[in-house]
């Protein structure tokens, strides 16, 4: 196995030990896409067999970490250092390939050290204004937040049951094509929640923008909310 210093399931999924269930899910989906056959990112570096082996590893890690009970037992086993104690149910990984490398390079326990590594993975961190004030959410910012998470409009539509057309109108700020403000706030909140954003803040901010537009330019002769 080529894994360099993969010492546990968290490394395999490239997440921190305190990752939420959501983060586990996201990491898994991203990795499965990355290590798929014909993946743009891997085909030139890894043969089919190697990519397949990596996928197996990812699947195993995911099976354990996505299940709260298995994860709890796995964590406990890691902590106590009793690797085999967890039994077959946890599907303990093959012996660590490169633990010595990790030990040589990290004086502290790996988990602790990993927490300190500055990371840019949370690409949405820049959405927070630098001075701590709330950022204003407009369509472009919503779209950026979506793209940063590698999510297509169709994914949002499937998850939120909002039509892709409305989602696009939200992003393009085609306010005249959108229904009444109460619906728009609901759409935005659902959209933001799906992206892992602060739903209340995003819908308040976007809603204010929308209402301002409606005040300036009320829609003519159309029943709000019905198309």
């Amino acid at each position: 196995m080529r894994g360099f210093d993969e010492v546990d399931h968290y490394d395999t999924l490239e997440i921190r030990p305190d990752a939420t269930a959501d983060e586990v899910e996201r990491a898994y989906r991203l990795l499965i896409a990355t290590w798929a056959d014909d993946s743009l990112a891997t085909y030139s570096m890894f043969g089919e067999e190697e990519a397949g082996a990596m996928r197996d590893r990812i699947e195993t890690a995911y099976r354990v970490l996505a299940d709260p009970e298995l994860r709890r037992r796995y964590d406990a086993a890691q902590l106590s250092g009793a690797e085999q104690d967890s039994g077959a149910a946890i599907a303990v990984e093959e012996p660590v390939v490169l633990a010595p490398l990790a030990e040589a390079s990290l004086a502290k326990p790996l988990a602790e050290a990993r927490r300190e590594v500055p990371t840019f993975d949370r690409m949405d961190d820049v959405e927070e204004a630098d001075d701590g004030t709330e950022v204003a959410w407009d369509g472009a910012r919503l779209r950026r937040a979506r793209l940063m998470r590698g999510v297509e409009v169709e994914d949002v539509a499937t998850a939120t049951k909002i039509s892709p057309a409305y989602l696009r109108f939200l992003e393009e700020e085609r306010f005249d094509d959108l229904p009444a403000v109460v619906y728009v706030r609901g759409f935005v909140a659902a959209y933001a929640r799906y992206l892992g954003l602060d739903a209340a803040q995003v819908s308040r901010s976007y809603g204010a923008r929308f209402e301002e537009h409606r005040r300036a330019k009320p829609p003519r002769g159309r029943l709000l909310g019905h198309r």
């Binding site: 991203l30 896409a33 570096m45 890894f46």
Partner: peptide, 14 residues
């Protein structure tokens, strides 16, 4: 956009 994360994963695993 995801490609960046994928390349990051390859960096880590290779």
């Amino acid at each position: 956009v995801r490609l960046g994360f994928a390349v990051k994963s390859v960096c880590k695993k290779y």
